[in-house]
Amino acid sequence: MTIFDQILEAQELLGKNHENAQSPEEKKLLLLAIDALWFLWRNGQAYEFEDYREDSESNAPHRVIAAFNTRDEADAWVRTKPKPPDLALVLIADNYHIVLSSRDGLRTSLVPDPEFEYYIEEMTRDGLPPPAATFNTREEANNWFNNQTAPPPQTVIQIGGEHYLAVYYRNINHRAMFPFSIVERLHARRKRREQNGPRE
């Protein structure tokens, strides 16, 4: 079944539920879902949506829409957008940031997002997962990663005794390797909040 067939079936199901909905609020929400699917279809984003769903089902980290080496590059990119992608995720030096924008696009900012720290924390809740590959140096790991034409969405590896998550963002063809130690930043913030209160 193609993504277009799935969208049509989903709309049909939503339409039936809309007919049986008891309250105006429920009807509005169901119409919103139907319109969202039409938006994807009519804006030529059905295949992109299909890729998004496949990425989501792989339990990989949340996808990003762009990646930059520096904050200056990211800021310049945002300024070129007449309508910045509000609430979208981007990488800056392989750190997650969220795009915040007013509806008119006149006020924008890129805010660090702890999304990935929580993701790694969940991955390690029952201990460190076994690495699929082990390397002595970052250069060796980079060569291994870059020589893969179609890497899996994520792979646990070990570099010099430290665990990393090698992530492939296929929607932008970007590869990134995140040290599991980034979860320590999350733990440090929690400790500061415990010591100084919730405003810390």
Rank of each mutant, 00 (worst) to 15 (best):
E48M: 13
T149N: 08
I157R: 01
W38D: 08
N147I: 12
D113N: 10
R175I: 07
R192N: 15
E122G: 00
E117S: 07
G105M: 01
N171H: 07
R71K: 10
F68N: 00
L110M: 01
L100H: 06
Y168D: 07
L89C: 02
Y52N: 06
D104K: 09
E19P: 03
A21D: 11
L8H: 06
E26T: 04
P82K: 07
D113L: 07
E48R: 10
D113V: 04
P131H: 04
D113P: 03
P112L: 08
V156N: 05
E9K: 09
L186G: 05
E184S: 11
V78H: 08
D5E: 09
H18A: 09
L128P: 03
R138F: 12
A133Q: 02
P112M: 06
N173K: 13
M123A: 15
L87D: 10
W38G: 14
I120V: 12
L32P: 02
L87Q: 15
D126Y: 10
R138C: 12
E9A: 11
Y52Q: 08
K16L: 12
E57P: 02
A76M: 07
R125T: 12
D51L: 14
V78Q: 08
D72H: 10
N43C: 06
Y119G: 01
R138V: 12
E26K: 00
I92S: 00
H18W: 07
H18L: 09
T134M: 14
A36D: 07
A133I: 06
I182Y: 03
W144D: 06
A46M: 10
L14F: 06
K81T: 02
E117W: 10
I65F: 06
F135H: 02
L29M: 12
F116E: 05
N95G: 02
D113I: 04
E50Q: 11
N20D: 15
D55R: 10
P179F: 08
T2Q: 06
L87R: 13
D113H: 12
I120Y: 03
L8C: 14
E73C: 02
K27D: 15
E140T: 02
A176T: 09
P24W: 06
R192C: 11
F135S: 03
L89T: 01
H187N: 13
A93R: 06
R170S: 09
T80C: 03
G127Q: 12
A133C: 06
H163Q: 07
W144T: 09
A76V: 02
A10D: 06
I120S: 02
P114N: 03
R170H: 09
Y47V: 08
E122W: 01
N143T: 15
L91E: 01
D5Q: 05
P112T: 04
A33D: 11
L29G: 08
A67W: 08
R193H: 01
H163I: 14
G105I: 01
T134C: 12
D35P: 02
E12G: 11
A188Y: 07
S58Y: 14
I159L: 05
Q45H: 11
S23R: 00
R199C: 09
T108W: 10
L37Q: 00
T2A: 11
P130I: 13
Y118I: 15
S101I: 00
L186E: 04
E200T: 08
P153L: 02
R189Q: 12
R175M: 11
P114E: 05
N171P: 00
I157H: 02
N173S: 15
M123K: 15
M177Y: 00
L32W: 11
S109P: 04
P84M: 10
